[in-house]
């Protein structure tokens, strides 16, 4: 629930802004310029997803996704929610400008918490735990909302209790969906969850340079060299090799930024993801020719595709048909003009 303008007493709204504004300022300072499109797009997707309703018994609920945003974006999810709520207020009048501070705290606060936890708890992206975090985020939101409302006045306390109770089923649904979404994301593109935007720590290191990587195929296996544009090697970065969406090899770069990994077997195209500190990341794809492998036996052959006779014939038929129509129309036109000139 977004609190509209005019509901809360001025001092509660002001307190909300006093906490939210520095949080937004700090997040902005820690947001590298090249992450702006990324954060904006994920924010947009989360905003949109929150507009799609999920049926629940006789009614339907819309989810908030603050837990999921925390898992995807880390502590910067707070900024993401500030932007999303500003837009909600501007476009649809969900919430308001004066209550924006409180609303951001209510929804972005738990997102920040989940983001903070997920950075410190490596297992937090397991679907079950993610589900608990997603549901928990909504519960915290409910408590914060109830708190804000009950601060507003005596008469609001019952409404606050009601709002808290209304959050319980939503938390359940949100937990289930968050767990499922994380499960699916891990299955489809696991590196999505490994990517993280810059943390709220050591911003000067992450300021505006990007990780590059070169990948070579050598007789010993895959040689991955990670480096920054100024020549600094990417030390102790995690290198993960994916083949058809599955993780096939993993390793770390040494002090020279070099990692040697075994060549993936039976793999035509490998995705190599280098994940550095503070969310630096480079993705390369390498096409591996099947013939160069010293495997015994005949090289695997690509399945022969039958020649699309049917398609060719129907295409030709279509072209001829069209040509015939045009000819017929043209002849008719000419005959008509002939007829009219005779008259």
């Amino acid at each position: 629930m977004h609190i509209a303008d005019g509901v809360l007493p001025a001092w509660v709204s002001a307190t909300g802004w006093v906490v939210t504004a520095p949080g937004v300022g700090l997040s902005l300072r820690h947001l590298p310029v090249e992450e702006i499109p990324k954060l904006a797009l994920i924010t947009s997707a989360v905003f949109l997803a929150s507009l799609i309703h999920v049926p629940l018994g006789p009614t339907s609920v819309h989810l908030i996704f603050n837990g999921l945003a925390g898992l995807l974006l880390g502590p910067l999810a707070f900024l993401s929610f500030f932007v999303a709520l500003t837009l909600q207020a501007l476009l649809f009048q969900f919430g308001g400008l004066f209550s924006l501070g409180v609303n951001t705290l209510v929804m972005g606060g738990p997102a920040f918490l989940v983001g903070w936890i997920s950075r410190r708890l490596p297992g937090s992206r397991r679907p079950l735990l993610a589900g608990f975090l997603g549901g928990g985020a909504i519960l915290v939101s409910g408590v914060l909302l109830a708190l804000a409302l009950s601060l507003a006045g005596q008469g609001f306390i019952s409404v606050a209790k009601l709002a808290l109770v209304a959050h319980l089923p939503v938390a359940l649904v949100e937990g289930i969906i968050t767990g499922l979404v994380i499960f699916l994301l891990q299955r489809i593109r696991p590196e999505v969850l490994l990517v993280s935007l810059a943390l709220l720590a050591l911003p000067s290191v992450s300021w505006g340079h990007r990780l590059d990587a070169d990948v070579y195929l050598t007789p010993q296996g895959l040689r991955v060299e990670a480096y920054f544009p100024d020549g600094t090697p990417g030390r102790n970065d995690r290198v993960t090799v994916y083949c058809q969406g599955k993780k096939v090899a993993e390793g770390r770069t040494d002090a020279q930024g070099v990692a040697l990994l075994p060549r993936p077997k039976d793999c035509l195209q490998a995705r190599i993801v280098v994940t550095g500190s503070l969310g630096h990341r480079a993705v390369r794809t390498l096409t591996l020719a099947p013939t160069s492998s010293p495997q015994p036996g005949p090289p695997p052959r690509a399945p022969k595709e039958p020649f699309p006779w049917k398609g060719v014939l129907s295409g030709l038929g279509f072209i001829f048909g069209l040509a015939g129509l045009i000819l017929a129309w043209d002849t008719r036109r000419r005959l008509r003009s002939l007829a009219s000139s005779r008259n």
Binding site: L41, A45, V192
Partner: peptide, 9 residues
């Protein structure tokens, strides 16, 4: 939802 997030990424 997963598809929406993935495409956004």
């Amino acid at each position: 939802y997963a598809l929406l997030f993935l495409r956004a990424y």
